[in-house]
Amino acid sequence: MYQAVRDAMSIALAKDDSAVVFGEDVAFGGVFRCTMFGRERVFNTPLTEQGIVGFGVGLALMGHTAIAEIQFADYIFPAFDQLVNEAAKIRYRSGGTYNVGGLTIRTPTMSVGHGGLYHSQSPEGFFMGASGLKVVIPRSPIQAKGLLLGSIRDPNPVIFMEPKILYRSAGLFAVEQVPVDDYELPLGQAEILVPGADLTLLTWGTPVYHSKVELIDLRSILPWDVETVAESVNRTGRLVIVHEAGMTAGVGAEISAEIQKRCFLKLNAPIKRVTGWE
């Protein structure tokens, strides 16, 4: 998957002269070697997440395509103010006169089997209340390439969260022919991976590979594809939501509330959440 991420950025740089890639150690290839494609318009920044995102906001305001990397999602919180109070709101505060739609924030997320408290978090839920942002989590190489190019070209700022354990987990994936050429997937559309009749199981990222029955990969966390999920639950009568983040105020709570409202008369059992420990 790391090769697909790298390929997507290479295409973005080749086709867009205004595009730049920046972050901590990216000129050396980055911790996960996702940025090993030359140093032209690829440069290191100081160790300041707030500065990285603030710099990206400024670049995007000037019309550039800014592709920033936060080295681990666990360290995105110093940039929370820049993301939620600046990037998410600039189009609204200017009445549509200007925006930072050219800003994409890439960051490795979720657990990896080691790494402890500062390298294993799933912070996607913190951004669900930030209208103006989009949040995307790919499950595989072809999804990573298509969704990353879709994020870079989307007219809104996007946080693109890459499950780090999947970077080199080739054995998990079915055989995928990742397009060599430009390849883009739309944001905000879920995908039914395994059709079923008795239960809808909804997840994203790494847990896709631990789930069975009618399985939906949500792919975009914000906006999330409520129509696809509701249609599935109306057919199956049951919904289980799986995510690595903790249960309290997790993304599953928002989805559960909305599906309960839309599908109440078709539900055969309460919606269940299977999550990481608090």
Rank of each mutant, 00 (worst) to 15 (best):
L267D: 08
A12W: 04
G101I: 04
S111E: 08
G58H: 04
E231F: 06
T206D: 10
R262G: 12
T109Y: 10
E227V: 13
T236H: 09
E176N: 08
R39T: 15
R153T: 15
I90V: 13
T35C: 06
P270R: 03
V194G: 07
E69D: 02
P186V: 13
Q71G: 00
I152W: 02
I90H: 09
A88E: 04
T104F: 00
A245T: 03
I241D: 01
R41I: 10
S151M: 13
A12I: 14
N234P: 05
P78E: 07
R219D: 00
R273I: 01
Q121E: 15
A257M: 12
S151R: 06
L13C: 12
G113I: 12
A12M: 15
V180R: 08
H64K: 10
P195R: 06
Q71T: 00
T35R: 08
I90Q: 11
L199W: 06
V240W: 13
D25L: 00
F173C: 05
I221F: 00
L13A: 14
T109I: 15
A73S: 15
G132K: 08
V158K: 00
S140A: 11
A79Q: 07
A68I: 02
T203Y: 00
H119C: 11
G276W: 11
W224N: 01
Y118G: 09
S94H: 06
I255S: 02
Q189G: 00
N268M: 06
D25H: 06
D198G: 02
M62K: 11
R93P: 00
E162R: 07
Y167Q: 12
V233Q: 02
Y75T: 05
V213E: 10
F80P: 07
S10G: 15
A12N: 11
G252N: 05
D154R: 11
I271A: 05
D7N: 15
T275G: 11
R262C: 12
S256D: 01
Q121Y: 12
V20G: 04
A249P: 00
I52Y: 03
G101R: 07
E184I: 15
L201H: 07
L199R: 15
L265G: 08
P223Q: 04
D17S: 15
E214L: 03
I152Y: 01
T65G: 03
Q82K: 03
G237V: 03
R168Y: 14
Q3R: 13
F264M: 14
W204H: 14
P155T: 05
Y209D: 10
L215S: 13
G113A: 14
R153F: 08
H114G: 10
A27R: 14
I76Q: 07
V5G: 03
R41K: 15
T35H: 06
V242Q: 08
N44E: 08
M247G: 01
F264C: 14
